[in-house]
Design a protein around this nucleic acid. Structure first.
Length: 427
RNA sequence: GGAGAGGUGGCUGAGUGGUCGAAAGCGGCGGUCUUGAAAACCGUUGAGGGGCAACCCUCCCAGGGUUCGAAUCCCUGCCUCUCCGCCA
């Protein structure tokens, strides 16, 4: 959520910033709501003040044995008046909250202007694009040819957008998770963290998947006593970031750097016809996530570092990639600045997203009430949160199947995975 | 699944329907003392919000209710702990 104070102190700047996302802000509606909020709030508080002071005098009068009936008569109508004012105020407050929680984060100055992914700007490129003396096959063909990917089986079990992996491919999939977690914990200073895969709605509100993106989520009925559904996590960002929800962190414990491997579940509503084949877009996929909780002044540098940590995995795997900064029209809802890392896929002859690394600023922290105690002022202040994939495991597997395929139809094992795989090639 | 206990500030923990946003201790901050530190002593110290301001409002797990007035009484929910049973 954007700081509501900004709307009162610098409305023009907020509107101009939202416009960079292609959003038009209904200023008229906001100003009307804000005006009634102000008058209703002041009226309500005034009535509460009256009630409080009258009640106190009743208490005193009673203690000194006076007749309190005249005082009781005096406050007789106050209750109803107060209830009415309170209800009116709450109704306006709810409308304002709805308005605010539907608004995306403000963009950092460094975010380029643009309408779509075509306007994202490449910031660096790494690795050499491999050449083949045969026509490189798509990852589904490679995987099915070596009996490692079985989409007929997954379709039978669960329908489309699921996968069954077998033998060497399944093992490589697991080895990638190991490599990623080992690298981030041993070289990048993250703490390995195991978290629930089902979470309460509060968590999803905190990281801003709710209320706006409910359609993208799966729910599980009957998991709690009051029969309210739990949500299946769409990313480990949700449980990892929510670990600091409603917490005041000691400044000396910052930054907090967490990594975890989880399955991710996404309904992929609205992506009909997109990436229907293969592992690229699944209802269930594995991801190793990176999350950092930092002081506000450290967050932009932390974003650069976190992006580098994700890139490191591709470098270890010797997979060519490029890093782009997302433009205003393509950046996610809660992010103030985002780098996407895109890996080279020979069969598509293009780069495809394999990681998205974002600085959320205080957007999530405000929703979660996640704060740290500033040792200089002694006061709690909002934290900044960051997250990034380090990496999406399925898509990394796709990249290896395509980039490391041989003319014989097998797949070489990247050097760094050999200690985990104990073989030189699969197939 | 059965039985019981309990949720109060950064932490531990008191709290009789009426100056209780809340004792006490710990921790934090400031000071005295000291070459410096520790100890001791003194002072100070919850959060959120509104208002130009004076100042005011809200918050004792959450949501309802009773009352002129609720941390305190009543109902519902959530969570934690202990014991028994079952279980990977």
């Amino acid at each position: 959520m954007i700081d509501p104070k900004l709307f009162r102190t610098d409305l023009d700047a907020v509107i101009a910033n939202l416009a960079r996302r292609g959003m038009t802000f209904n200023q008229q509606e906001y100003l009307e709501l804000e005006e009634s909020r102000k008058s209703l709030q002041m009226k309500t508080q005034e009535l509460q003040n009256t009630r409080n002071s009258r009640s106190k005098s009743i208490g005193k009068a009673k203690a000194s044995g006076e007749d309190i009936q005249p005082l009781l008569d005096e406050v007789a109508t106050l209750g109803q008046e107060l209830d009415d004012a309170k209800n009116a105020f709450e109704a306006v407050q709810i409308k304002l909250d709805d308005l605010f929680s539907g608004l995306p984060n403000l963009l950092d100055d460094a975010v380029p202007e643009g309408k779509s992914e075509d306007d994202n700007i490449e910031v660096r490129k790494w690795g050499e694009i491999p050449t083949f003396d045969f026509e490189p096959k798509d990852h589904t063909e490679v995987g099915e040819a070596i009996a490692g990917l079985d989409f007929a089986a997954s379709a039978k079990l669960s329908g489309s957008r699921f996968a069954v992996m077998r033998a060497g491919v399944a093992k490589m999939h697991r080895a990638l998770i190991q490599l990623m977690l080992d690298t981030h914990t041993e070289q990048h200073g993250y703490q390995e963290t195991y978290v629930p895969y089902l979470v309460s709605p509060h968590c999803l509100y905190g990281t801003s998947q709710l209320p706006k993106f409910a359609d993208d989520l799966f729910t599980v009925q009957g998991t709690t006593q009051d029969d309210k559904p739990l949500y299946m996590i769409p990313t480990a960002e949700v449980p990892l970031t929510n670990l600091v929800r409603e917490q005041i962190i000691d400044e000396k414990d910052l930054p907090i750097k967490l990594t975890g491997h989880t399955p991710c579940f996404r309904s992929e509503a609205g992506s009909y016809g997109k990436d229907v084949k293969g592992l690229i877009r699944q209802h269930q996929f594995e991801k190793v996530e990176l999350v950092q909780i930092v002081k506000p002044q450290d967050s932009m540098q932390a974003l650069d570092e976190l992006t580098g940590h994700a890139e490191k995995i591709l470098q270890l795997l010797e997979l060519p990639y490029r890093t782009v900064i997302l433009c205003g029209g393509d950046i996610g809802f809660g992010a103030t600045k985002t780098f996407d890392i895109e890996v080279w896929l020979p069969a598509q002859n293009t780069y495809r997203e394999i990681s998205s690394c974002s600085n959320m600023g205080d957007f999530q922290a405000r929703r979660m009430q996640s704060r740290f105690r500033n040792n200089e002022t002694g006061k709690p202040e909002l934290l900044h949160t960051l997250n990034g994939s380090g990496l999406a495991v399925g898509r990394t597997l796709v990249a290896i199947l395509e980039n490391y395929q041989t003319a014989e139809g097998k797949v070489r094992v990247p050097e760094v995975l050999k200690p985990y795989m104990k073989v030189d090639e699969i197939g």
